[in-house]
């Protein structure tokens, strides 16, 4: 799967080498390339081995141990994995993470597209620039600063958000202290920070659609909705796909917002998997089990990405 995707992505017209390397006389490989490649790849390969491959093997190895930082670990076989299935807390954390991730994804994909389309309508350049900069700014500010600001604004009795909501008749919402609203707060604050990125990527995608196509559609009498759904959206599908993949991976790694806003609470209502891993490893010092949970997160990301690539082949249109 990955292999074919990559081969398509490579797309430099090189035929796949099918014969044994040594006896294929027509290979255009220059003799020097192998050594040059080794030299050019060395910095990446070194850091990959040390900081990606070794820890990945480490996380798998640790999952077979009970390890608490004070003593060296003891081998406990598959106990950590059987524990996964009976851990009702983990199930709850995965449920809340998935719900929050889907909401963050939906806001980025749908609201992001709406705002990007609105930004691309006719308006003075300086106003467009102002909007674009305001939307993007939270993206470059640190999540912890953003979450701290919102911790004040979402305060139940003294926060501005509830004060303004009072004008439209909404009673004081306990944003950070109730299990119904805490996940909503995490979703809103995270989306507030990230949607500018999605908007900007959408705008770049919209601008790359040739004007002639839209003009041709106008000449043919297509109205604005037809033009959007029949022309813009299909031509934008690679951008949508890119944003879905990136935002999914990001949404499953949310950590700072629940950490600062709600401490994952109340209970586990707004706890994300990454926060659960952090708590298990560095507060309960249960490193083996934390690694096992880490493996489940890795599997979730792999499965989601593979599904997205498969789906994209049917629905993504690369003009």
């Amino acid at each position: 799967m990955t292999n074919t995707t990559v081969r398509q992505a490579v797309g430099d017209g090189r035929k796949p080498a099918t014969h044994g390397g040594e006896i294929a006389p027509k290979r255009r490989t220059r003799p020097g390339d192998g050594w040059a490649a080794a030299a050019f790849l060395a910095p990446s390969a070194g850091s990959f081995l040390l900081f990606v491959l070794a820890p990945t093997i480490g996380v798998i190895a640790l999952s077979f141990y009970s390890w608490n930082l004070l003593s060296d670990g003891t081998f406990i076989g598959l106990d950590n994995f059987t524990r996964l299935f009976s851990d009702s807390r983990l199930v709850a954390v995965y449920r809340s993470t998935t719900t929050m991730a889907l909401a963050i994804l939906a806001i980025n994909i749908v609201i992001g597209l709406l705002l990007a389309v609105l930004l691309e309508t006719r308006m003075p350049r300086i106003i467009r620039g102002f909007f674009r900069l305001s939307f993007l700014f939270p993206f470059v500010v640190s999540s912890s600063a953003v979450a701290l600001i919102w911790r004040f604004l979402l305060n139940k009795d003294l926060g501005l958000v509830n004060y303004w909501l009072g004008f439209i008749g909404v009673d004081h919402i306990d944003w950070l202290g109730s299990s119904a609203w805490a996940p909503v707060a995490v979703v809103l604050v995270n989306s507030w920070k990230t949607v500018g990125f999605s908007i900007l990527v959408y705008v770049a995608g919209l601008q790359s659609i040739p004007n002639e196509i839209k003009e041709a559609a106008i000449v043919d009498g297509a109205n604005a909705w037809q033009r959007f759904f029949r022309i813009t959206l299909p031509l934008l599908s690679p951008t949508v796909f890119f944003l879905v993949v990136i935002n999914t991976i990001n949404a499953f790694q949310v950590f700072a917002e629940p950490r600062v806003l709600t401490q994952g609470g109340p209970g586990d209502a707004s706890r994300t998997v990454v926060e659960f891993i952090y708590d298990t490893a560095f507060q309960s010092f249960d490193l083996g089990y934390a690694s096992t949970v880490g493996i489940t997160l890795m599997l979730v990301l792999v499965v989601l990405t593979l599904i997205q690539f498969r789906v994209s082949r049917r629905f993504t249109f690369y003009g």
Binding site: T2, N3, T5, V6, R7, V10, R14, P16, A17, G21, R28, T29, R30, D33, G34, A36, A37, A38, F40, L41, S44, F48, F51, V52, A54, P55, T56, G58, V59, A61, L62, I249, Q253, F255, V274, I277, Y278, A281, F282, L287, A290, S291, G294, I295, L297, M298, L301, V302, T305
Partner: peptide, 30 residues
């Protein structure tokens, strides 16, 4: 550059996108 195993190595690079730091944080810390 042309070299043997290029596609396999590149597949490994892309595959590692799915192993974020959050997953390997425990062994990294150790």
């Amino acid at each position: 550059l042309e070299f043997r195993g290029k596609n396999v190595l590149f597949a490994i690079v892309i595959g590692s996108l799915m192993i974020p730091l959050q997953v390997t944080i425990v062994p990294l810390f150790l």
